[in-house]
């Protein structure tokens, strides 16, 4: 697109209409936290609309991991890829979505570097809404990624016994955890010097966290110390919970543990992130 500054520039006229426009004394009541968060969520969606390239990483990555691990491990671990899919798909959904939460911290960092945050921070709105809105936009990306993984699973032969409700519940559980975990990366993003370092730090945590879990194999096959660690990894609970919900099996304590982790993550990292957001300059 070419710039055409000439015509619009000459159109600035300081007349009575102009004076009326610039002196608006109307003061509607300030919107509440939910309205503010949704408005910032709308901004995130607009950014996706204008910069659709940002969907590439969250869609390409899940397809890649699902295909790769299904065919890499399927034959060896479960005898056939179709049987392995029943075990793997709910877990790989959890792993993939958890892994792409690292883009939240990086995306926020890039967004902040562009500077428009000074405007938001000097506006009398519920301040956490700025970040909650960004994460709402991320939820749309995670939902898209979940749909891709699940759809790919169906094509490859995955048939969940838990039905539509079970699948939706599993995806909801994974999204809730991803939303909560994203606060950690937002905090990292506010402290890190560059967007690249946010990526580096989150990879370093997320890779071991998602692999040392029950996503790929049954923990009972592991050496004792590893099994001990895997049994305490929240990703294990997330993968097991997602699997149970999708297959219509009893969920045990998995869902409770995941939801408590979510509350814990938001309760700890939400305020820390907001404090940093207020004072970072």
């Amino acid at each position: 697109m070419t710039m055409t500054p000439e015509a619009p520039i000459s159109a600035l006229v300081i007349d009575d209409a102009f004076r009326d426009t610039i002196t608006l004394r109307e003061r509607p009541p300030q919107p509440g936290p939910i309205a503010v968060s949704l408005t910032f969520g709308w901004r995130a969606l607009l950014k996706i609309k204008h910069v659709p390239e940002q969907l590439f990483d969250v869609t390409a990555f899940p397809i890649m991991t699902t295909l790769m691990f299904t065919y890499l491990f399927g034959g060896a671990l479960a005898g056939s890829t179709a049987e392995y899919l029943d075990f793997l798909l709910p877990g790989i959904l959890a792993q993939t979505i958890v892994l792409i939460t690292m883009y939240s911290g990086m995306g926020m960092r890039l967004d902040i570097e562009k500077g428009v945050f000074d405007r938001f921070r000097s506006t009398p709105v519920w301040q956490p809404g700025v970040l909650v809105g960004m994460l709402l936009g991320d939820l749309v990306r995670y939902l898209l990624a979940s749909t891709m993984v699940f759809g790919l699973g169906l094509i490859l032969g995955f048939r969940p016994d838990g039905g539509v409700l079970g699948v939706l519940a599993a995806i909801g559980l994974v999204l809730a955890f991803a939303f909560s975990l994203s606060w950690v990366w937002l905090l990292v993003g506010l402290y890190a010097r560059t967007a690249q370092s946010v990526m580096g730090i989150s990879m370093m945590v997320l890779f071991p966290l998602t692999f040392i879990s029950s996503v790929f194999v049954d923990p009972t096959t592991m050496p004792d110390p590893l099994e001990w660690a895997v049994d305490r990894n929240p990703i294990t609970f997330l993968a097991d919970g997602s699997r149970a919900l999708m297959q219509g099996d009893p969920v045990g304590n998995t869902v409770t543990v995941v939801l408590l982790s979510c509350i814990g993550l938001v309760a700890v990292f939400g305020p820390l992130t907001m404090r940093r957001f207020r004072t970072a300059s």
Binding site: R27, P28, P29, Q30, P31, A35, V36, T39, W42, R43, L46, K47, H50, V51, K114, G115, V116, D118, R119, F120, T123, V125
Partner: peptide, 20 residues
């Protein structure tokens, strides 16, 4: 001080919404 990725109109609507 506005969002470069958004249009002029979207930027102003966003800020109007934030002001209630």
């Amino acid at each position: 001080s506005v969002d470069e990725d958004l249009t002029g109109s979207e930027n102003l609507i966003l800020l109007c919404r934030l002001r209630g």
